[in-house]
């Protein structure tokens, strides 16, 4: 049990890390990774939704009739997304302003629905939570890593939380503005995917 628990948790961190291995949920991955703080905020919000939707789907897996299961999953996911949205507005309003529409869009993030359908509906609640937590943290780390590359090259800084900058390039640094615009997201993601495939090949 403990072994499979650890396995379900760690698979989300490398073997099935969402944007790179599963290549899922790319819409927020490309859109919000202009700053590390946005990537982290988006990742944490998604993790919250993933853990609780996985838990509920798993607890209700024997009650939900299979013909209306997708509708039920969407109701559960949308509920938690709305809770996250209201909570973020109340607690971290500046971050909410930056992420804007991408918070409500977690409802249609294929990672969340994908884990509900592919994992939580077939496994017990403890494993489902471990899976949600693993995938969620993997997603957060991927967003932060991609955002770090883009922000460092595009703006010359790394901002982790609400204006707290942990790293800044020298005054001679010329920002590579392409990286913080939309096409830069595709290029950076493609290069990171290639890099991960190269490492994973052995």
């Amino acid at each position: 049990m403990a072994q499979s628990l650890a396995k379900e948790f760690t698979k989300g961190l490398w073997a099935e890390i969402p944007p790179f291995r599963l290549v899922l949920g790319l819409c927020p991955v490309l859109a919000v990774t202009t700053k590390v703080e946005n990537g982290l905020g988006m990742g944490i919000a998604t993790t919250f939704v993933l853990v609780f939707s996985n838990l509920l789907v798993s607890l209700l897996r024997n009650i939900i009739p299979s013909k209306v299961r997708i509708a039920c999953y969407i109701v559960i996911i949308a509920t938690f997304v709305t809770i996250v949205e209201l909570g973020m507005q109340a607690l971290v309003y500046p971050l909410f302003l930056k992420l804007g529409i991408f918070i409500p869009l977690i409802v249609v993030n294929c990672i969340v629905l994908g884990r509900a359908e592919a994992f939580a509906s077939k496994n017990g609640p403890v494993l489902a939570v471990a899976d949600g937590l693993g995938i969620g943290i993997g997603f957060t780390l991927s967003l932060a890593a991609l955002a770090a590359v883009r922000e460092l090259l595009g703006a010359g800084t790394i901002t982790i939380w609400n204006g707290v900058t942990i790293f800044e390039m020298g005054v001679n640094f010329q920002p590579f503005a392409f990286m913080v615009q939309a096409p830069g997201a595709f290029v950076a993601l493609g290069l990171m995917l290639a890099g991960m495939n190269l490492i994973g090949k052995k």
């Binding site: 209306v68 039920c72 559960i76």
Partner: peptide
Amino acid sequence: VVLTVLTSVSGFLL
């Protein structure tokens, strides 16, 4: 029944 209960609970919670 399942859908009704689920949406009502969700509405109440929200």
